[in-house]
Design a binder for these strands. Sequence first.
DNA 1: GGTAATTGGTACAAAATTAAATCAGTTCAA
DNA 2: TTGAACTGATTTAATTTTGTACCAATTACC
Lengths: 135, 135
Amino acid sequence: MSKIDAAKIWSLNYNLLMSVIAGVSADIAELGLDTKELFVLSQVEEHPYPAELAATLSMPKPTVTVYVKRLEAAGFLRREIDAADLRRHRLQVTPAGRKVTSRGLALLSDAFGARLGRLSAAEQAELRSLLEKLS
Amino acid sequence: MSKIDAAKIWSLNYNLLMSVIAGVSADIAELGLDTKELFVLSQVEEHPYPAELAATLSMPKPTVTVYVKRLEAAGFLRREIDAADLRRHRLQVTPAGRKVTSRGLALLSDAFGARLGRLSAAEQAELRSLLEKLS
DNA sequence: GGTAATTGGTACAAAATTAAATCAGTTCAA
DNA sequence: TTGAACTGATTTAATTTTGTACCAATTACC
């Protein structure tokens, strides 16, 4: 595959994701969250430390600090000092946070699902498998 | 495909793109461009008006204004008032802009291509075709 | 033990991004 | 025509995001 094609695939993909985000951000905002906050929150269970979040979301540490602080203030998250390493802040999603996460992801899924609906079930499975290989 | 899967596909994809961006942004910066500016510049030939750029890049109009101004100051872009509609600013990529665009896209392609390399040629073609259906 | 190097997290100031208001040009209906 | 509604683009002011510098806890090594 030529370089031009890689760039083409990339930009198809990028524009797709950006337009899906643009389409749902207003609805997500009604949940009391903004889009980036949802992304952070949705990864907390898998990556319960700010430094891990920063790495997996490709986002600077101070940015994570800000989001975590807001999510905590909104009651979607709790922070506690890790007993084993007093530098670490272990994060825990509250029940309210879990609820809002699943609603937010559902909105995202609906919007993205509307696009995915153009593919057959087999094609969707194929896409997922290709993306997993790339990840 | 369930809602959960749509969200999963989405986030696989999102994290993939963000990590590729994070990996190349330093190299792109050396060209005298930042990543978003490259995205804007790379779409100018296809969409030569700021309003069109804003729509295709899912980005607010004032943001486009700022990037266009910077790209013009850097000599990568020229602006002229459209004779047929004096409100419109027709954009034109300069030779220097074209050069820097192709270098920037090459960097992006290299980085993304390194991931794509995990797929066979047939799989890459398949991925492109799936993404085109979604776009 | 003691101390240099590393890691997790944050504060603050600066830079980037955007919403809201605005201005100029165009369209359209009466 | 004229003027109400609309569109393209920009300015201004506010918000968001981030680079830099920093502190505290841990680790590695002598």
